[in-house]
Amino acid sequence: MTLLTKIDLYLRRTGMPPSTFGRRAVKDPRLVGDLKRGRVPGPRLAARVDAFIARTK
Rank of each mutant, 00 (worst) to 15 (best):
I7E: 01
R44I: 10
K6I: 08
D50W: 00
I53H: 03
D34I: 00
M1Y: 11
L9I: 11
F21S: 07
A46V: 12
R30C: 04
A46N: 05
V40D: 11
T14P: 10
L35T: 04
G22R: 04
D28F: 03
D8V: 03
D34K: 15
A25V: 05
R13I: 00
R12H: 09
R44V: 12
F52D: 07
D8M: 13
M16G: 10
G22I: 00
L31D: 05
R24G: 00
R44Y: 08
K27L: 10
K6A: 12
L3I: 12
K27T: 13
L4V: 09
L9M: 10
P41F: 03
D28L: 05
I53K: 06
T2H: 14
K27H: 15
I53T: 05
V40C: 10
R24Q: 14
R44P: 00
K6N: 12
P41Y: 10
T5C: 05
R44T: 11
L11I: 09
L35M: 08
Y10M: 04
S19K: 14
Y10H: 13
M1F: 11
V32Q: 09
T5E: 15
A47F: 03
V40G: 02
P29E: 13
L45Y: 05
R48S: 14
M16A: 06
R23T: 09
P18T: 00
V49R: 03
T5V: 13
R30A: 14
L45F: 07
G33Y: 09
R24F: 02
R13N: 11
G38D: 04
A54P: 04
P17L: 04
A25T: 01
G33F: 07
K57P: 00
P17Y: 01
G33L: 08
D28P: 03
A51T: 07
L45A: 08
T2F: 13
R39T: 02
T5I: 11
T20Q: 14
A54I: 04
T20S: 12
P18D: 07
K6Q: 15
L11T: 02
F52H: 12
V40L: 12
R30Q: 13
R13L: 09
G22V: 00
P29A: 06
G38F: 10
R44H: 11
L3V: 10
T56G: 00
R44G: 07
D8A: 14
D28Y: 00
G38V: 07
I53L: 09
K57F: 03
P29N: 05
R48G: 03
R39K: 15
G38A: 07
L4A: 08
S19A: 13
R24M: 12
V49D: 02
L9G: 11
P17G: 04
V40Q: 15
F21H: 05
G38Q: 08
V49P: 02
L35N: 04
P18V: 02
D34P: 00
A51P: 07
A51G: 14
L3F: 02
R30D: 08
R23W: 10
